[in-house]
Amino acid sequence: MELTPEYYKALLPFRNSPQTADDPPEIYDDLISCGWISAVGCTTMDYNGSVQVYDNCWAITPQGRMALAAYEKSVKHDADEKRQNRITNYFSAINIGVSVFSFVLGLLADHYFGVVAFVEAFFHLG
């Protein structure tokens, strides 16, 4: 199973220390089934002669640490790729602008006298 943003947020607190909860969230079941966390502590309660064991402390496994690292690397790679695409798009836009400006400047330089004559004729007609 792939580490989703939801699982990442749930797994992140385990990086620093084991987590305990009287009423564990349902997502812990998914994290356990993926092998990203495991129970490291138990509580026993005696109900009318029968002993029940409850998991109440979970710690991250090596697979969980690897999943966190892989997710963070993937997110960082995606962010770097988006940044690189923005820079590339920016330089492409500048390149197009410079090309258009050069084209217009070239036309004006090539046809300078014709443009000046047209402007003079246009304003003297009035």
Rank of each mutant, 00 (worst) to 15 (best):
F123L: 10
Y112F: 15
L108N: 14
Q84E: 13
F123V: 07
E81V: 05
A121M: 14
S33I: 09
Y71M: 04
A70M: 08
Q52V: 15
R86F: 10
F113M: 05
I87P: 14
A10F: 06
E72D: 15
F118R: 05
N56L: 09
S102N: 13
E6N: 06
E26V: 09
L3I: 06
H124D: 11
R15K: 12
L107R: 14
V104Y: 13
K9N: 06
F122H: 05
D78A: 07
W58S: 05
G97H: 04
F113H: 11
V115T: 11
S99V: 08
K76W: 05
Y7C: 08
D23W: 05
C34R: 12
C34G: 07
V51N: 11
Q84R: 01
D23N: 13
L105N: 04
S92Y: 02
P24E: 00
D30W: 04
D110A: 15
V116A: 09
I37P: 00
D29I: 07
Q52E: 02
T4Q: 06
G126N: 00
V40P: 06
L3P: 08
L105S: 13
L3G: 03
V53D: 13
A21N: 14
P25C: 10
I94T: 05
L68F: 08
E81S: 12
D46T: 03
Y112A: 11
K82S: 08
P13M: 06
G35I: 06
Q19N: 00
N85E: 15
Q63V: 12
M66L: 11
K9F: 08
S74E: 15
F14A: 03
I37E: 07
F118I: 01
I94H: 00
N16T: 12
N85M: 11
Y71L: 02
Q63D: 15
I60S: 03
G106Y: 04
F123G: 08
E2H: 12
F118D: 07
A70H: 09
C57F: 00
D80H: 03
I27T: 00
R83D: 14
A70Q: 00
F91G: 09
N16G: 11
A21E: 01
T44N: 13
F123C: 10
V75Y: 04
S17T: 08
F122M: 12
L3H: 00
C57V: 01
T61I: 01
E120L: 07
T20R: 07
F14N: 07
S38P: 03
L105K: 03
A121F: 07
C57K: 03
V116Q: 02
C34Q: 11
V100W: 04
G64V: 01
G106N: 14
D80C: 10
Q52L: 01
W58L: 09
F103C: 07
H124K: 14
C42M: 14
D22P: 05
L12D: 00
L12V: 02
S102I: 13
L125V: 15
H124P: 09
P24V: 01
N16V: 05
